[in-house]
Amino acid sequence: MKPVAALALVLATGAWAQYPGDRQAHGAARSQAPAAVKGVDVLERLGDNVPEAGHFVDSEGQPFQLSDVLHRGTPVVLTLVYYRCPALCSLVLSGLTRSLRNLDLKLGQDYRVVTVSIDPTETSRQAAESKRGHLQALGVDPLSPAWTFATGQDEDVHALAGALGFQYTYDEASKQYAHAAAIFVLSPDGKISRYLYGIDFPARDVKMALVEAGKGKVGTALDRVLLTCFKYDATTRRFEPYVLGFVRIGASFVFVALATLLTVLWRQEMKMKKRGARA
């Protein structure tokens, strides 16, 4: 799947001929973000705030700002794509859609999604078309306000992408954008909480990222326990079993078991002592 992502990127940019050596580099590096294409990279800015004031237009043609969806207690999945994109963005979006369909969290209630076009020439009509497709695939009302598809001016888009560390370039020859395959999970207060890479996002990873970003307000108690056992692994860029988490749970279990045993034994002794004193 990793080579697919790399391939998709290269096809999308039409840069195949220009950077023939990169394919090998992607294969060798076990990274999911094909970062070697010039000017295309994701520099993680975890914990930074995203600019909320940038002006965008949603698929209805209404003005939209990130502050409209932030500070409502729900984490936000943010994707930067462009709607006429022939390959990679569609793969990213449909990968996300597939993952959200398998998620037992409720769109709109537990989390929101915002998709912003990096192509300033695109219109809200194109945004609306993309929105209808993906929301239908997701099986929700195609006009649901919980997933916003927005377009915007070049400077606003750049400010947002810059804050996210998402670097992309426009390729004149193919008239396409070269960009990485990544989505962003924002905490309810607009902090960048997690980057997820690729075109296939396991529902577990997305859920973990949302639970993590939701700071205790998203998901069940069990999900939060799970989060102690699965931590984001920067090497594989996935949520992986977290050994120390398992150890902590195991150790607490042993501790509680021993404490229970000792409590029972000590209580028994106290009772016997009392009985002895009375007799």
Binding site: D233, A234, T235, T236, E240, V243, V247, G250, A251
Partner: peptide, 27 residues
Amino acid sequence: PVIGLVAMLVAAESAFGFGFFDPARGG
């Protein structure tokens, strides 16, 4: 129990290639 667990983790890593302790596999 902790030494038992460590023994199992090392055994799992050396037998099945899990990346608990190997940095190349995220350990």
